[in-house]
Simulated assay, not measured.
Amino acid sequence: MDITGERASESLMEDTTTEGSTMVIKMECTDDQPQMRENQEEVEKLKALLAQKEQENDLLREKIQTCQAPYPLTPETINNSSVPNYFRYCTGFTYDEFNKLCRFLRLPDSETVTQTHIPLNCDKLDRHTRHMPLRQEFLLVLIRLRQNFDLEELAFKFQIDIQSVSTLFSLWIDFMYDRLGVSVWPHRDIITKNMPDDYKAEFPTSFAILDCTEIKIEKPSSLLVQCEIYSNYKSTNTLKSLIVCDPRGSIMFASALYTGSTSDQEIFRECKIKDLLKGLLQCGYLKRGDGLMVDKGFLIEKDAKELGLKLNIPPFAKSSLRMPVSDVEITKKIAKHRVHVGRAIAKVKQFKIVSGRIPNSMLVNINEIWFVVCMLSNFQQHIIQT
């Protein structure tokens, strides 16, 4: 065989060998592909299972937060405190009075029920705070009203953020303002039934005691506003409200707040109590000739006469003459019973949120806060027990 033929034969053998190797390699690769696909599928299954477990863990965490949220301060923990009367100190109420107030506001007994059961706007709260039990939210609000703690202090005590404290407080004030805003003026027969004996003996047909009170506020920057809210009587900047209570000291009417320079009679004419009294006369809750008891500062005899009501007011002494003995006796009697409205106002001002100087930042909803604390005072023990 010639050299050319031998070389051709060797070349063919090399090609065949190379092709064979290639075929083997290709066959080996083809055999590994199913195994790789199986491994990939197994990895995908494990990833899906892990995602499912993570989702289940998230649901369990949320359920735990819902059922056992870590809010350290509860009505029960305060009530069980070793400090005497600590619940009354924090809220202004006993534990029993607190529960009665919860029932009046229709708060559920369950600690796990959330805001969906009363008209509070939950969208403004974070997820953690939305699971806070209603009784604990209400406790927070009462502590804020009674002790006037800073938002930071309450955020620490209840383990929530500062913004949530502010939001909760505003939402609850709106809710209570609507819930407590129902008419609380009883029928004259009910007032008579609960009158103190000495009051009934001396003023049996006088069913309301009126007085105005003032709360201090921060000095505003506007000079015009300063003039309007400056009270000559208090020698400072104030807001003023008309309070009406029954003979045993329960508040039946609390007006909106007016500037400190407004006179008592102006507030009487502007606060719509005349419309209320007209309605009470029309529906029989009052009768023509029934009386209102006021101090000398209320120059509303003309208004009372227009309504058909009698005004029990201390007589004025004439400068040139001594006051008759009969007028002195009437003055003493009226003063003795008018003190009840002063005591009712003092109860309201035990809520420290209105007893100190009101900051300008609180003026946005101060009318609602004032009305709420006035009505809440009626859920405390009566001034006079009959």
Results as ranks from 00 to 15, higher is better:
139 L>W: 06
362 M>N: 07
48 A>K: 07
36 M>W: 11
194 N>G: 05
109 D>F: 11
57 N>M: 15
349 K>Q: 12
361 S>T: 12
309 L>R: 05
77 T>Q: 08
188 R>M: 06
153 E>K: 14
143 I>D: 01
122 C>G: 01
311 L>R: 02
179 R>L: 10
365 N>Y: 09
5 G>M: 07
185 W>Y: 15
76 E>F: 02
26 K>H: 09
110 S>W: 03
67 C>E: 14
121 N>R: 14
66 T>P: 00
29 C>H: 08
129 T>G: 01
318 K>F: 03
17 T>N: 10
306 E>K: 10
382 H>Q: 15
101 L>A: 11
151 L>E: 09
110 S>V: 08
372 V>F: 02
321 L>P: 00
343 R>M: 07
18 T>Q: 10
11 S>N: 09
292 L>Y: 02
164 S>H: 00
89 Y>K: 08
48 A>T: 05
118 I>R: 05
249 G>E: 14
148 N>M: 02
167 T>L: 07
191 I>C: 04
327 D>K: 13
107 L>Q: 03
347 K>P: 07
290 D>F: 12
133 P>S: 10
297 G>T: 02
215 I>N: 05
263 S>A: 12
202 E>C: 11
72 P>Q: 12
296 K>E: 03
132 M>H: 02
192 T>C: 10
225 V>K: 13
348 V>E: 07
95 Y>A: 06
88 R>S: 12
99 N>W: 09
369 I>R: 02
285 Y>E: 00
239 L>C: 04
300 I>R: 01
343 R>D: 07
